[in-house]
């Protein structure tokens, strides 16, 4: 019998934009135009700087304001735009995190509404560099924070998905045994393997029907979750 549902964040609840799109979205209104491959290269440089300089920092410090600014600086160096570099960096820094999130996927609101109406406790397990509090603030901004009794970011732990300890930690916060929890995620190797290793039921969100895992239950939209829950008992 399923008595609680835990969701993955990005790719499941929240639609994230690729970094190159975000760069363009910020810079284009400022009058800068570059070909798509230039933004892609800039985004790659930004990621590379993070990997090389900051990946090894203690958790909780890996995406501070200073880190973000330095990584965005790497992107600007590749783009080599004319103008006041400090102002460009300030603009990117100011808007980056907010524009990275493109909203909720279709099907999320009906799913959360139906589960809440059935008094099913819900949680979120996020693989992100931001803290659990920041994830909660983001979900509040998106208008769905109230649905979640527990929100955990891996950045506040010592583990990464698919470590089963993460999945058990969220179930504990919802005060439900793992055998009564359904996990919903879009990543076969991290979400489904992790949840099943922890002893949960797991459903893969496969919006494009590209599933290549015959042994996994999948849905194409979160709107299918409430009905699926009935079939799981």
């Amino acid at each position: 019998m399923i008595r609680a549902v835990i969701f993955d964040r990005a790719g499941t609840l929240v639609r994230e934009r690729p970094g190159e799109e975000v760069l363009r979205e910020i810079l284009h209104p400022m009058g800068y135009e570059r070909p798509p491959e230039a933004y892609k290269k800039a985004e790659t440089a930004s990621r590379r700087r993070w990997r090389e300089k900051y990946q090894g920092l203690p958790r909780g410090h890996r995406w501070s304001r200073e880190v973000r600014r330095d990584c965005l600086q790497a992107a600007l160096e590749v783009l080599a735009l004319p103008g006041d570099q400090e102002e460009l960096l300030a603009r990117l820094d100011e808007q980056w995190d907010a524009l990275r999130v493109h909203g909720l996927y279709g099907g999320v609101l009906p799913c959360l509404g139906a589960l809440a109406a059935s008094r099913i406790p819900m949680g979120v397990l996020a693989q992100t560099l931001r803290s659990s509090l920041e994830v909660r603030a983001e979900l509040e901004r998106l208008g769905v924070g109230r649905y979640f009794g527990a929100i955990l970011s891996v950045e506040d732990t010592e583990w990464d998905k698919p470590d089963p300890k993460l999945f058990r930690a969220v179930a504990d916060r919802l005060e439900r045994p793992v055998s009564e929890v359904l996990f919903v995620g879009d990543d076969l190797a991290k979400d489904i393997v992790g949840a099943r290793s922890a002893g949960m039921f797991a459903v893969l969100v496969d919006r494009h029907g590209a599933t290549t895992a015959a042994g996994v239950t999948s849905v194409t939209t979160l709107a299918q979750i409430p009905a699926l829950l009935n079939t799981l008992g």
Partner: peptide
């Protein structure tokens, strides 16, 4: 073997 075994169970019906 734990995670790899779990992944293997995902592959087949």
């Amino acid at each position: 073997a734990g995670v790899v075994g779990e992944f293997q169970r995902c592959l087949g019906c």
